[in-house]
Write a protein that binds this DNA or RNA. Structure first.
Lengths: 200, 200
DNA sequence: TGTACCATGTAATTGGTTACATGATTAC
DNA sequence: GTAATCATGTAACCAATTACATGGTACA
């Protein structure tokens, strides 16, 4: 089974969805750290069904094309549950902007500053969207965001990764931009203090 | 030109390297956010040479097989310099652990806690390695880590991304593990305060 | 009349990983 | 001997993106 299959099962475990619905969840990022196009999703759904992990029923709609609505089978839920607690293979994150940073010493400083300022802005915006979602979840869930056996908790946990990721990204972009502009004397925070702060 | 080509040019812009040297840099992560195997590197080097962006000379070694040492051409440096300040395509980060978190409500809490504790440990270790590298760079560079026109600065900037990334990862893993174990009442930091802190 | 959204699929291409293949030298 | 490192390549396979393809409804 490939990761995409588990991503789909994970979504279907929370609600019944059509291929089209899945596509939208995946475009907007499943719990913000996975994505897939419809050309990947439809064949994968077919494979999952052959393997007996999902089933579908055709929902007839007037005013709209008919659709196939998928749900997990008990077998599908079982293998999803097992997969969740297995350690994932070590992931080498790839980030083109960090690669650009690695060669930034060659670049025109003004253009470089603009690049990292623009990226800072993008990630600030993403951070704001995540914060809105967080507020919405906290209010809407009725406290379930902190109950680990609730799907609300799981979505909230994934969202928190996004919040931390973007917060760090913004901080880093700002540091790089400041540095190439010559306005940066020390790591962010603690300006004057002795800076003792033990090594680890 | 694909990203791998720029990754190679970025390394060769700092020092002459053989395909084997490049492979090692890439295994250990170029500035920690790109990677590639030797089966990708050798063909890509050949393409770069056909395009006139790198050249090689054969270095004869006794005690070791001969090797081809590559360097960038002026043309190669030029297109690298241009690429650096172009905005990268929006990257959708993929992280299998976050996907697992999204379905963690289905899992056995003890197994889930173990998973996230183990991951926390791994990322703590990576963080420690980065911190050692940081110290080494700061001492070895003679202050050049803060001079944007120095290759030291570029490597240092990439490293700082790694530091922030791992710091956030550790924090997140700990929060998830604490939560599934039932020891977590509030977002990290500020325990009692009113929590006013404006929306943005 | 044309754009946007709903809905589902297949085909071609690219990028990346794993496996295959060879061969020399050094250290245990 | 045999494992480890140096050194360079090709071939097969897989995952993912982009492009091709179809067809209905809503709305401006």
């Amino acid at each position: 089974m490939k990761t995409l299959g588990y991503a789909i099962l994970g979504l279907l475990a929370q609600e019944e969805l059509s291929g089209y619905d899945l596509m939208q969840r995946m475009k907007g990022r499943v719990g913000n750290f996975w994505s897939a196009g419809h050309s990947q999703i439809y064949p994968e759904l077919a494979r999952l069904e052959v393997d007996g992990l999902v089933t579908h029923s055709v929902v007839k709609q007037q005013e709209r094309p008919d659709k196939k609505v998928y749900e997990t089978t008990p077998e599908g839920l079982k293998i999803l549950r097992e997969w969740v607690t297995e350690p994932p293979p070590a992931n080498a994150p790839k980030d083109e902007l960090v690669l650009k940073a690695y060669s930034v010493w060659l670049a025109d400083p003004e253009k470089a500053a603009k690049l990292f300022r623009d990226e800072e802005t993008k990630h600030k915006e993403q951070l704001s969207r995540y914060k809105e979602t967080r507020s919405w979840m906290e209010h809407e869930s009725g406290g379930d965001v902190l109950r680990p056996e609730s799907p609300w908790f799981a979505g909230y946990a994934a969202l928190r990764r996004g919040l931390i990721y973007e917060k760090g990204y913004v901080e880093w972009c700002r540091w790089v931009a400041d540095s190439v502009e010559g306005k940066q004397d020390d790591p962010p925070k603690r300006k004057k203090k002795k800076g003792k702060k033990k090594g680890e």
